[in-house]
Every structure is written in C-alpha cells, then in structure tokens.
Design a protein around this nucleic acid. Structure first.
Length: 837
RNA sequence: GCCCGGAUGGCGGAAUCGGCAGACGCGGGGGCCUCAAAAGCCCCUGUCCUUACGGGCGUGCGGGUUCGAGUCCCGCUCCGGGCACCA
C-alpha cells in the first residue's frame, strides 16, 4: 500500500526511531478504507447482520482520549465481526444540538450552526486519523434539517397518539440569565453555572412525553438484556417501582373531603399518629385554619423560593422550622381516631400523592419529625426478641404486628395484604403500584435545539405544524445577547405565523426539544438515513435492529439509555416502526473513564492530552494498542507521567513485529522438523484460541498480552540455534497479523499486503486446530499438604491412577515423605497431585 | 442513610471452573554491540533468611469451609461510583 522506497528509520517527534514510516503508512491505509467502500454495507447485504454502534458524540472539536478509547473498542468490534463474516453496520453521526454551541455564539457572535459545522469537521477528521472505519454515507447530524424534519414528525405523531402533553411544571429559573436552565447547568450549591445567580423555582407551561406509561415495560425489559448489572440496577432504581396502597383519610368535619396518601407500609396503619401534606399540595389552602394560616404561609413561602438542592440539603434548618400544623384533623380509618394534619417540606409533591400518613415508629423521617414536634409514637412491629423498653430510632425491619387490631400476630408481608384487602372491602383505599419515574420534560427555552413544531392559535389552541411545512428551522438572522435568553422567543419573523387551521394570526412555539430527543432515535435513522418520506423504513429498521453491540460511557447509564428504550417502544406502538425489536440495544458495553489527577479528563477541566502527537510517534496503531492493553476496558484509567512510556512500549511492540516480519531468515537446510517447530505451531494455535476467546469476552488487555507473548516466542525462534522453518514461520506470522488486524489495523494491513498482495481486512478470522491447542505433555505439580514439592513432565491424557503412581514414585517425594505414608492422595490429572498425611 | 463496584510487586495489570500467585507491559539493575551514544539484543527484578543449594512468608484486616482459597462463606476497614427526605 505504502509505495515509497523504505526510507530507513524515520524519527518520531518524541525522538524514538521507528522501524517503519508510521505517518505515511497510516495515511495511505486510511485513504484506502475511506475510498474502497469495504465498510459500506447495503440493506440487502446477504450476509448475516451485525449492528455495531458507539454512542454518537457531541461534536466538541478534535477527538480526545475518551473518544479514542471509545472508537478503538468500537472499531475493533467492527473489524473483528467483519472478518468473522458478518455484514457489519457501522455508522457514525453527531449529536449536534446543544448548549456549548449556543454559549460560543453568545461569546463570539457567530451562528451556532457555523460553530457546530466546524467542530464536526474537526471531529470527523480526527476520527479518521484513528483508522476507525464507518459507512460514512449514513452519517446523520441532529441539526441537519432532513433529520430535524423527522424528529418533529415523531413529536407530532407521539402527540397525536396521546403520548405528549403540556402542563405547568416547576423549572430552574435563573434571574440573571432570564431563562430556564437544565438541571445539569445548576451547580451543586444551587447557583447558575454561567451567571452565578441563585437559581429559583418557577412554574411554566412545559411539554412532556408520557414515559411513565411504559414504566413497567421499561423495568421488565431489563431482565433479558446483556447489559452491565450496574447499569440495569441504576435504571431499576431510577424507575423506582414500589408496591403499596392508596388510603383516603377523611377530613374531620368534612365528610365529603379526603386526603389521599400513598404508603408502602399499609401494615403499619394502626401506628399512624399524624398525616402530612407537601407544601405545594392543592388542599393546603382549604385545610389550613385561620389560626394556623401564618405559620403555614411562612413555610410555603420559604419552600417555594428554595431550589430542590436547598430544600433537600441537610442544612435545611432546624426540624421545628420544617413543618407547620394546618389546624385540621383527618381520621385514621383503621382506628377511627382523628390525627393532626401537618404541612412539611420533607413531603414532596412530585412523588406519590404529595401526602403521607406518618408512622413515626416505623419510618426514620416520620420519627425525626414526630420527636421534634412532640407527636405520639406507636409501635406496630415487634422485632424478633421483643419490643425494647425505650428506643431512639424507627424500626423499619420485619417482625410481628402488635397494637394493630385485626392485624395482630401477622408478619409484615401478610399484614400488608390483609390491610389492603380490608381497605378495599371498606372502600377506604386500594392496593397500588407507584413509580419514582416522572414524565419526561422535553421543552427547553433554548435556541440551538430542534424546534417544537407547534403553533399557538388564539382560537384553535394548540395546532401542529402541517407535515408539508416541516421541518421548522430556526432563523439565521438572529442576535445572541449576553442575557442568555433564546433569540427564538423574540424573533418576530419566526414567532408570527398564520394559524394553519383558521389562517388567523398566531404564534409559534419557541421552545426547542431536549437534545436527548434527538439521540433517542438516531440509531433507527442509521438503518435507512436516506428515506425521503419517513424517518426510516420499517423494513430497514426491522432488519438491522436491535443494535448488537452498543458502546459508550457509563454517564449515559440512565437518561439516554432509558429515553432511547422508551422511544423505540413508543415508535413501534404509534405505528412508525412495526416489526422492530422492542429493546433497541441487545448488548451494551460501558467503557471506563480516563481520569487525570483524580478527575475526568475533559475539555472543561483543561486536562486533555491530545491524541495528535501520538499519531506521529507511535501511530494510531500504537495509541489504539495502548488503550486496549492498559487495563480492562470497563475500568477507569488514570493517566499519569508514566503513561507516555507505556504508549512508547506499544510502539516498540509494533517495531518488533515489523522487523520480525520484514527480515529474511536463512532457510534451514534439510527441511527436518525440530521440537521448536512444533512448539511454535502449538503457540500459534493456542494464541488463536486465546485471542478469539478474549475478544468475545471483552478482555482486550489479555488479548494484546497474548500477541506480545507470541512475538517474543517467534523472536526466540528465529534466533534459535536451529533457525526457523519457513513454512512454520509463515503460518505464525500470518496468524499474528490476522489476530492483530482488528486491534491495530494499519501495520498488519501493510505487512499482509506486502506478503500476499491481499487486503487483510477482507480475510477470514483464523481458526485453530484443536489437536495443536491440546499440549502433548504438561508440567504436573506434586504437593505434600498443599505445598509444591516436585514438578513432573507428564502426558496430558494421564489418568488419575497413573498420575498418583507417578507422584508417589518421584525421588524427591519419596525423600520428602521419609517413610511416612499419605493418608489421602488427591489426584487431579494432568495438573496436580496433592498428598495428605 | 440506602444500593452497587473495588483492594494482588515500585507502577498498570494477569490468574476464565477452588489446583504452580504475579502472565504481559512500564519502571529499575546488570551485560552484549559501539570510539562513544541512541536504537536493538540477552539476563535478573514480590519479600525475608542463606556464600550457595535451598527454605520461610506473601493477594486490605479478622474468622470459617476445604486435601487445597486471590477465587467460596461470615464479620470488618479503606477507596471509588450511583441514588438520596421517593413515603
């Protein structure tokens, strides 16, 4: 491929001499892969499909080490599965809407599109320098109008099918920036990351997706996925399914009015000594008596102004300031006793019904509150060993019900079921399932996102933008001011529009969609990115989906992966994706983070080590090998002062391989086979098996180690006294190059081309001879009481008895035993015999 | 507070099913080559005792199971991550 005469030993920037011209060879092959179309697959490809995908990146400019790691793993999978004979779909795209472009626009005055397009160009270029291969024809970009059109179409389709709605919701409002912030933009201390102002909570009309309608399926679907357990657990916790009961507490003196509470512990109902409303609960006003109005209003005012962070922090103030008595009482239906109704900030409007029955004896928070307010505490669960005389904390464990009327004597589980049956019989409530998962708030008061395709008409109300007017694209003639307010909201030409229904003057929706919407269906678009009249053809999507191997960072463990799963199911249900697998990502791999000085390596931390310099010293191959070799792919990696030396070591390995392959060795006369020949052949076939197994189980570091061992072995072989046999050496080197090809693609491609005139990446993955993998003889360890006393070379197929006999006849063992007779002989042929005295 | 991970030489890590702990690499030491250096090549490199041969100890800590434990069980310590008034 690289055709120049060998220019001797080129010197890299780090001053190390390389055995081969790194930059020229890598550039030539990258050009070849880009133009040859080898990794472009068509939808009617007859080979079995394999969909490999790395999470599409936000285009932040040139690739950093996190990208390199990600795409090295991804490219390995693509090239490996291609060699194994699959039609591998390997697309690339850009998650190109998002705040950094808008912030840059505010700073420099440039349009976010120009900024983004330039960053995309940089990232695409540096990904190519890595030698990673994609079907670039399929590239998608979130901000591309042809993509936006379908994002908006999907929004409207979901709305039409009742999965989108609008309601008032509290948002993070920055008074300095005069806009709403995403949660990620609010710092830990509750201030705005840009202006430093204290973020407030405000209620605004917001758009939502009904992800909660899929809560159960999102939960149950996790069981069958080949995902890291950690990620599944995080999603389960996020969904937060809990079984319990709704109970209606009738207000004293108001038989028509009840406070509905949710509890997971209906078995503790007899211990309810008060009830609590969230400060935002709609019944607070009505149920607060004149005498208590002052205290309640004071509490509500304080809570309303506080951010979530303030409200839930442990510095929320003394407990006595956290609640207020409403003056009203509700009836505990189990005891018919009236209990006081409080308002308290520890009850959240966003979970359950925004109201609770409080059982201080069996709930930590209720216990703390009851203690502070002098409320009674009645224990209803007797732990094993009986009730203690006094106690200073709630008891939340298992036990036998006491003080609980008809529940007395039952265990917690039976008592729950009995209490729910009783509630349902008496009409006081019912069993239910509650989720922590909230509907997905998708509106953002931002410019650089996909506009929500809605028109607000004074007469017709909310009107979808007609399909033939999509996509709604943000205007170019906008000015970004430091206020941070989206210029969309004040752009007359954009906002003013005729109602598509009645033609009267109407206003466009100026909110844009959360960028997680764009990333919730891009993997479907990849299957059919040219489709002119649908987001994708259902046939193409059904063919390629699910993604067989999805690779990305653990930081997307919850949101992106949950939203994408929801979207896939929803798109199927609204008829856009019939026949598509309901779970989009069959197997997920989450790579470890690269850290430096304890924190994540990132642009914002300013601790990037650019890959560029390594492209010139050890090449993309060397850098890729380093990322594969340095440790388990799933583990975090600490970048230190020593890291450059490890990378250089990977470069040296490639040098040795190059010299080994390009040096001519004197053919051994006579053609007789030596022991060394057989040993080399065995080592080769063992390596094929080991590397194949390792690649299949994501143990890339040991796969690289295995190849290093093989090179070391071959190096000894060619320098050995008898010298190498050409046929043996050729078989070994070919296998070595084939095994290395998915990991470090350039050098093996170049060497294979020179050897055979063939493209290594079009070759089949090597297979091994099981006979050669099985060694003829093995070193058997003989232990006395678990301590190694002798090693004997034995036939691998040795029997239990033979092994034992051999061990007992060993001179060393006889001497060591010194006449003692083993009471037991543990024989585990062919590896070990252990003698017990 | 709750839920997950993890702890092995000077360092990154290996040991896939309970069977030789430390593969592979980095770093370090010694040697060869060279006028010299770089590069390359060879040998050594857990720790303690021993001139040697050889032996003792050793996978965060304390117990246990087993002929045998880095690996399994029980109880801790420390580190990392996620969730966090979720009723």
């Amino acid at each position: 491929m690289y055709s120049a005469e060998c220019p001797g030993a080129p010197r890299s920037m780090t001053g190390m001499a390389r055995a081969y011209p790194v930059v020229e060879i890598e550039a030539a092959w990258q050009e070849q892969w880009l133009t040859s179309g080898l990794y472009e697959v068509d939808n009617d490809d007859p080979r079995q499909k394999f969909y490999a995908l790395c999470m599409y990146p936000y285009p932040s400019g040139s690739a950093h080490q996190g990208h390199v790691r990600n795409y090295t793993f991804g490219d390995l999978v693509v090239r490996y599965q291609t060699m194994r004979g699959f039609a591998v779909l390997s697309p690339f795209g850009f998650d190109s809407f998002g705040l950094p472009a808008e912030n840059a626009a505010i700073k420099t005055g440039s349009h976010p599109r120009e900024f983004t397009d330039a960053r995309i160009e940089e990232l695409r270029e540096s990904v190519r320098h890595l030698g990673a291969v994609y079907d670039w024809r399929r590239e998608v970009r979130s901000h591309d109008p042809t993509y936006m059109r379908w994002t908006q179409t999907i929004f409207l389709k979901l709305m039409e099918q009742g999965l989108v709605y609008r309601k008032m919701a509290p948002v993070n409002w920055c008074p300095g920036c005069n806009t709403v912030l995403a949660n990620e933009q609010v710092l830990g201390d509750g201030t705005c990351e840009r202006s430093g102002d204290l973020v407030e909570r405000r209620d605004l009309e917001q758009w939502f997706f009904k992800i909660t309608e899929y809560a159960d399926e999102l939960l149950e679907g996790l069981d069958d996925l080949e995902w890291p357990e950690r990620v599944k657990t995080m999603q389960r916790n996020w969904i937060g399914r809990s079984e319990g009961a709704m109970i209606d507490l009738v207000v004293d003196g108001r038989p028509d009015l009840a406070v509905r509470v949710f509890t997971t512990r209906p078995d503790t109902s007899f211990g309810m000594t008060y009830a609590v409303l969230a400060p935002e609960h709609p019944l607070v006003d009505e149920l607060t008596t004149a005498e208590q109005r002052g205290a309640v209003d004071e509490l509500r005012e304080r809570v309303a102004g506080a951010s979530d962070i303030e409200r839930t922090s442990s510095e929320g103030g003394p407990l006595t300031k956290r609640g207020a008595f409403t003056g009203s009482y509700v009836t505990n239906p189990f005891t018919d006793a009236p209990v006081p109704l409080y308002v308290a900030d520890y009850v959240l409007m966003g979970y359950g019904t925004g109201a609770i029955m409080a059982v201080p004896a069996e709930d930590d928070r209720d216990f703390a509150f009851a203690t502070a307010y002098g409320l009674p505490i009645i224990r209803t669960t007797e732990p094993e060993g009986g009730l203690p005389d006094d106690f200073d904390s709630a008891y939340t464990g298992d036990g036998i019900k006491v003080n609980s009327g008809f529940l007395d004597g039952l265990g917690v589980i039976e008592a729950k079921a009995t209490a729910i049956r009783w509630l349902e019989d008496k009409g006081h409530g019912h069993g239910t399932v509650n989720y922590r998962l909230r509907d997905w708030l998708v509106s953002r008061q931002r410019f650089w996102g996909c506009p929500i395709p809605i028109i607000h008409c004074p007469d017709c109300g909310i009107v979808p933008v007609p399909a033939d007017q999509l996509p709604v694209v943000a205007p170019d003639d906008v000015e970004f001011t430091p206020s941070g307010q989206s210029p969309l909201a004040t752009h007359e030409g954009f906002v003013n529009v005729a109602c598509p229904r009645c033609a009267k003057a109407a206003r466009r929706e100026t909110d844009t969609m959360d960028t997680f919407v764009d990333s919730s269906w891009y993997f479907l678009r990849f299957t059919d990115p040219f489709s002119p009249d649908a987001p994708f053809s259902p046939e193409a999507a059904a063919h390629w989906m699910p993604v067989d191997q999805y690779i990305g960072g653990i930081e997307h463990a919850i949101l992106h992966l949950l939203y994408a799963r929801f979207f896939t199911k929803a798109l199927i249900d609204v008829g856009l994706a019939p026949g598509v697998s309901r779970e989009p990502f069959r197997s997920l791999f989450t790579q470890g983070m690269i850290r430096m000085d304890g924190s994540k390596m990132s642009k914002s931390k300013g601790n990037l080590v650019a890959p560029t310099k390594y492209y010139e010293s050890v090449g993309a191959d060397g850098l890729r090998l380093f990322h594969l070799f340095v440790g388990p792919p799933a583990d975090d990696f600490d970048w230190t002062e020593q890291t450059d030396q490890v990378i250089e070591g990977c470069g040296r390995f490639l040098d040795r391989l190059w010299r080994l392959t390009t040096t001519s060795y004197a053919s051994r006369p006579g053609g007789a086979t030596s022991d060394e020949d057989l040993e080399v052949r065995r080592a080769v076939h063992r390596a094929i098996k080991k590397v194949t197994d390792d690649l299949d189980r994501w143990s890339y570091n040991t796969a690289v180690a295995q190849l290093m061992e093989l090179v070391n072995h071959l190096q000894r072989y060619v320098r050995s006294e008898v010298g190498p046999a050409q046929g043996v050496l050729d078989e070994a080197i070919d296998a070595l190059l084939l095994l290395l090809a998915p990991m470090a693609p350039h050098v093996p491609a170049e060497l294979y081309q020179r050897r055979h005139g063939l493209h290594i990446h079009e070759e089949a993955w090597p297979s091994y001879d099981p006979v050669l993998v099985q060694a003829e003889t093995t070193t058997m360890v003989v232990q006395i009481l678990g301590k190694v006393r002798d090693r004997i070379e034995v036939d691998s197929a040795i029997s239990e008895d033979e092994a034992a006999a051999l061990a007992l006849s060993s001179e060393k063992i006889i001497a060591e035993l010194d006449g003692r007779v083993p009471s037991r002989v543990i024989s585990r042929p062919p590896k070990l015999v252990n003698l017990v005295l």
